[in-house]
């Protein structure tokens, strides 16, 4: 018995099912580049898993050694700086592409029936991505990351009703310390990745089960064929996209490698303090409002995001064909972008 045959009997694969599964017809508009935005966070996540696994070999999750171990990765280990830089830039691209993907879904209104639930899975993925960023940043235990962790846990603590419980759950005690770092570490390398894989699975399953929304654009009206097969056509587009992103990612990591900040000092907040860019709008908002609204505002925002497909349906009922969703989206994006730039230039 030949090896191929042996393998076939030991590991039976239904070829026809495979072909059928992979040649799923895809609407033409997916040739437009912004439909590849959903794929980008997925590739970035894979990059994160690989680089993250490498980093975990040397990172030491304890308050005395965390900073030293990262310094060692950055300055001493072969290619350590590169692996760290790719992990960092890939995180940034992941977050940016999740935001853009979300805007694409929002403005094409493809969260509408029957995709409400998948939109909600999507919002959860967005939050997971942000928590990924937050917990990863905390691990460095440098000044900025220490104080980000401090402010972050205090925000959780100021949540109405469950605040105290949440804060002590995150901190693992009354103050930030070893327990907090341990928790951030476990979340970052264990719980969040598992949750992410599970949710991406659900997200992609629903995309397949419900199909990608069939939209018609003006320039497509005269085209006869309305779909093209996933394999090999769309897969090729995606692969080109992957190559492109990889190129950008490596260029960014080479041109702007990460550095070490100052070691964490629990007694001195740096006089110029900023969170990572994706928290700029929240940070500006906290400066503008009192504690109550400062904390409640972002939570209400998240609540609206979750319920948006239903809010949109309601708007469509009371004011049909007025494009309320579109204008709310435009105004919301403008406000957030405004806060973002205000935080860049202001202090």
């Amino acid at each position: 018995m030949g090896l191929a045959k042996w393998f076939k009997t030991s590991f039976p694969v239904d070829n026809e099912a495979l072909v059928e599964m992979s040649s799923e017809p895809i609407p033409n508009h997916l040739k437009k580049w912004w439909w590849a935005l959903g794929g980008t966070p997925l590739y970035m996540f894979i990059v994160q898993v690989i680089t993250g696994l490498l980093l975990v070999f040397y990172y030491e999750p304890n308050v005395e050694e965390a900073y030293n171990s990262i310094s060692r990765i950055t300055n001493e280990l072969p290619y350590g700086w590169l692996i760290r830089s790719i992990h960092k830039w890939s995180a940034n691209i992941m977050i940016a592409s999740v935001i853009l993907h979300m805007m694409r879904v929002f403005f094409t209104q493809t969260y509408r029936k029957p995709r409400e639930l998948n939109w909600m899975f999507g919002v959860t993925l967005f939050l997971l991505t942000l928590i990924f960023g937050f917990s990863g940043y905390s691990l460095i235990y440098e000044q900025m990351s220490y104080w980000a962790m401090k402010v972050g846990t205090e925000i959780a603590g100021a949540t109405p009703f469950i605040g105290d419980w949440m804060a002590s759950f995150i901190k693992g005690g009354e103050d930030i310390g070893q327990h907090t770092l341990t928790r951030m570490h476990i979340f970052h390398v264990m719980i969040l990745p598992l949750a992410m894989v599970a949710l991406i699975g659900l997200h992609v399953y629903l995309i397949r089960a419900l199909g990608v929304s069939d939209l018609r654009f003006k320039d497509e009206e005269r085209v006869e064929k309305k779909t093209f097969p996933f394999w090999p056509d769309h897969a090729t587009t995606e692969l080109v996209m992957v190559a492109l992103i990889m190129f950008v990612l490596i260029a960014l990591a080479l041109l702007f490698p990460v550095h070490m900040g100052e070691r964490a000092n629990p007694n001195v907040t740096p006089i110029h303090i900023k969170p990572e860019w994706y928290f700029y709008p929240v940070f500006r908002w906290l400066k503008l409002t009192n504690l109550f609204w400062g904390v409640l505002g972002p939570m209400i925002f998240i609540g609206i995001l979750y319920l948006w497909p239903f809010i949109d349906r309601f708007f469509e009922k009371i004011a049909p064909k007025k494009d309320l969703a579109f204008w709310i989206g435009v105004i919301g994006s403008l406000i957030l972008t405004g806060f973002f730039f205000w935080e860049i230039v202001g202090h």
Binding site: W147, K150, V151, T153, E154, I155, A158, N267, V268, T269, P270, I271, H272, I273, F283, L286, K287, L291
Partner: peptide, 22 residues
């Protein structure tokens, strides 16, 4: 008392200043 940063004593302005959210 806002979100836990450490305030600075600013002698020239006779005040405590918190760098996090001013």
């Amino acid at each position: 008392t806002h979100l836990g940063c450490t305030v600075y004593w600013q002698q020239d302005k006779n005040r405590f200043y918190c760098p996090c959210h001013q």
